[in-house]
């Protein structure tokens, strides 16, 4: 019994990373960034609007929160659809009540197929991120590059056309990427991506078509992870968000601005028994005078204006 010799070769064992996408720097060592009005913590609330096809292909893996039962899985299909019919409007009402402007990551197919919903979002002047075509159109290593290019282009073209302006941000379904995804995004005009959850600040990310800014949208604090996957109570989720905000605001006071992206799923948090917990979170956020409630694009602009002039 033995392994191939290649298993004992370490071609990337060098300073920095085992790839060239971004530089190795520790957050604590970077020059402090200040947010408008001297706020300490920039918070963007992201609402993900997703279409999970009933005839899920699961290529190359079953997307989390997708179909689980033998076809036709009415149970999961309709529960997810609930979010786009009912939950989303409950969430929008909650945002209005506390003056929070969400950023919305939407699957382009959903935006095309639910014109009412898309119009409602655009009327509210909502900042949209492209969330890929649908939740069963993953971007993945080994994917045919032509297929992925078409997928990226179709997703962006569709959403740009519906929005009447270029969409600036991207969130891949399941935050999964191929080796080419960042290059394709930059090539098609995307300015920021939220897939890599490795920082509490935006940071520059290299592509073959110029820089992207990575705007991490953390999985570990999002509703579907805490409540849906970890099965923590809704009240615990509220506490966890509160603890995160307290900690990051405290760290920002010593080290410079911090960012928190709070990602929500209307099929989960938009349920009648959970919405009050979202309201509790929004209420807390809106009351804090050290928190800058902004859209992802606003944070991106503040970050890039400041850091690019310093570079």
């Amino acid at each position: 019994m033995s392994l191939d010799d290649r298993y004992f070769e370490y071609p990337w064992r060098r300073h920095g990373y085992d790839h060239d996408r971004y530089d190795w720097t520790m957050l604590a060592d970077r020059p402090p960034v200040t947010w408008p009005g001297g706020k300490r913590l920039a918070v963007w609330v992201n609402l993900s609007l997703e279409f999970y096809p009933l005839n899920q292909r699961g290529e190359p893996f079953k997307v989390p929160n997708g179909m689980k039962m033998p076809y036709p899985d009415l149970r999961h299909f309709t529960l997810r659809d609930y979010g786009n019919r009912v939950g989303v409007f409950r969430c929008l009402k909650a945002f209005d009540r506390y003056g929070v402007r969400p950023t919305v990551a939407i699957n382009s197919q959903l935006a095309r197929d639910t014109p009412y919903l898309t119009r409602r979002l655009l009327e509210r002047d909502t900042e949209l991120l492209c969330h890929g075509w649908n939740m069963d159109h993953l971007h993945y290593g080994g994917q045919d590059p032509r297929e992925e290019r078409e997928q990226v282009k179709r997703s962006l073209d569709t959403l740009n056309q519906l929005a009447g302006r270029p969409v600036r941000g991207w969130l891949s379904p399941a935050r999964n990427q191929s080796w080419h995804t960042p290059d394709l995004l930059a090539e098609h005009g995307v300015e920021y991506c939220a897939d890599w959850v490795n920082d509490d600040m935006p940071y520059p990310f290299r592509t073959d078509h110029g820089p992207l800014t990575m705007m991490p949208l953390p999985t570990e604090i999002e509703d579907q992870f805490v409540i849906g996957q970890n099965l923590h109570s809704e009240d615990s989720w509220v506490e966890q968000v509160q603890d995160a905000v307290d900690f990051l605001a405290g760290e920002a006071a010593e080290q410079g601005g911090r960012m928190l992206g709070l990602s929500l799923h209307p099929w989960l948090i938009g349920q009648p028994h959970r919405i009050a917990c979202l309201e509790a979170v929004l209420e807390q956020l809106s009351r804090r005078d050290d928190v800058w409630l902004a859209t992802a694009g606003e944070i991106l602009d503040a970050f890039n204006t400041q850091t690019r002039s310093e570079r």
Binding site: Y140, G141, R175, D195, W196, N198
Partner: peptide, 11 residues
């Protein structure tokens, strides 16, 4: 996932 496994690597 097939490499690059961005979600696991990034966290």
């Amino acid at each position: 996932q097939p490499s690059p496994a961005v979600p696991g690597y990034a966290i």
